[in-house]
Design a protein around this nucleic acid. Structure first.
Lengths: 280, 280
DNA sequence: TGATTTGTTTCTCTTGCCGAAACTTGGTTT
DNA sequence: AAACCAAGTTTCGGCAAGAGAAACAAATCA
């Protein structure tokens, strides 16, 4: 009988496997052999072949007839752009990103929470020669960077704990927090703040400022972020960035129907609440 | 026993169904209800729910808890950008598109063949106020526009016939070819040419010029296209466009390892060949 | 040439899946 | 507020779609 995964939602094993195969390509592997697919997805070679063949027939994968290697197919690209065009948040936020770049001359990003790590869904790049490398569609770790930690701060208790306990954390720089307990402490201390500033924890020479974006229900749906090379970071500039990014976050949230007062409410709904550090 | 679809490749029904569900969102439907998914994909509601739930758990779909409507999820976006970044053809062709736009002041596109219609995988837009609407990732019909017909011309006999016979063709303007026989005639007359010019068959007020892109093996892998509003079309301009687009197509092909002489060969390998209308 | 790795097929067993129909929920009509 | 309708969800038993071990084939290496 068709079962439910941990009694919550329906889960079809076959479809799940197909998704696992596709995701083999997610972390920077443009080309993979059948054996790689099998290894990475933990699926038997036999079955990996059948899944890959099916996906290929649907245009989700492309196999080079010569080398026998697989790549993601045009259909995935096509669907990807379809998402891109249908994202409300992106439409609303884009002009704000543009304005942030105009005002700061640094790169601005829009980042949304996602099960396996926050994903960057929009970028407006700085025009300066030295700038942070911001890749559209890139997935971030949970333990480094301003946006991931800010998102963690506002995620519901349960989800946050799930992430904090179920992950091994990677070190990126000497300032990266890799200990789950320390990360929890840091993250909880952010709650209630409408911005977060951090320097050199994901990239040795970069700093960033993020502000949360809330929807009408007061849940966090993303963050706006501005980041740049540490070399251009002066006290005055950072203060200005914080002011601008906070404002952008608040504005975007407002456009999404978020009532500012709900921030305090959203926080206090949870157990270990603290009064917001700053009002609006 | 696991069967093969028409004896050719493996085909897993479950995976196929999941793909069908995802593709419901392909043609401009950002939001769909369970019932819509069921109807559009021809899958029972029961099963559509189970597939959609599974896809949702994997981040391939997102369901608004309020409205119960589905949207494509972040994972699809993430994978989409991964394809985008790994496309060799795109990397090679992009600078040529840019140069075409600089020289012509009109919009340039890179289009690749795909089972259910050519897809635009790169665009450099004209900066003029009046310009063609070119959507990245958009799928085109087979019977209208310069690129689709040019691709048809160079596709292997079998594939071309499959497309020509298995489709009902839609009319876009009064000049659109909707009759399969007429389309075959037109398309065969293009074979051997290294460009194709057309005016007002997809969009009443737009014209376009496309040139084929061949790979090292002499198969068509895409087209370069420049298109603009008919109002700006003068004889001299069209001639210039043709010259530029032809050159770009040839150059990109060369970078892909295509040996120009192979063009004549590729054509004459097939039955009803004709000598190329123009040499290089 | 033999050894090793990668890709493909075969075959058998069964578990994951399928669909009809019943049930629930929320909104609209009378 | 009862009756209605449409959308979503759950249940259930039967069975065929699919899983995997192992044999086979085809490259690649040494």
């Amino acid at each position: 009988m068709t079962r439910k995964r941990d009694g919550e939602t329906y889960w079809l094993e076959g479809v799940g496997r197909a998704m696992r195969v596709l995701e083999c390509f997610a972390d920077g592997n443009p080309e993979l052999r059948l054996t790689d697919l099998s290894h990475r997805s933990g699926i038997t070679k036999t079955q990996a072949l059948r899944i890959a063949s099916t996906l290929e027939a649907g245009g989700y994968l492309h196999r080079d007839p010569e080398t026998k290697r697989y790549r993601l197919g045009i259909t995935v690209f096509h669907l990807g752009t379809a998402v891109h065009n249908s994202m409300d948040l992106r439409h609303i936020a884009h002009p704000y990103l543009q304005r942030l770049v105009d005002a700061t001359q640094e790169t601005a990003r829009l980042i949304v929470p996602h099960a396996s790590g926050p994903v960057c869904i929009d970028v407006v790049e700085s025009q300066k020669g030295i700038r942070v490398f911001a890749q559209l569609g890139a997935k971030m770790p949970w333990n480094a960077g301003t946006s991931p930690k800010l998102i963690l701060a506002y995620l519901p208790e349960e989800e946050r704990e799930h992430i904090l306990t179920h992950r091994p954390f990677k070190r990126y720089t000497k300032r990266t927090i890799v200990d789950a307990r320390e990360l929890r402490r840091e993250v909880l201390s952010i709650r209630g703040q409408d911005f977060y500033y951090c320097d050199g924890d994901l990239d040795e020479d970069a700093f960033g400022v993020s502000a949360p974006i809330f929807n009408h229900a007061g849940s966090i749906v993303g963050t706006v972020n501005v980041s740049g090379p540490s070399s251009r970071r002066s006290k005055a500039e950072v203060d200005q960035f914080i002011r601008l990014v906070r404002a952008a976050g608040a504005e975007i949230s407002r456009e999404l129907g978020h009532c500012p007062a709900a921030l305090a409410t959203a926080v206090s709904e949870h157990s270990d609440s603290r009064v917001p550090a700053r009002g609006p």
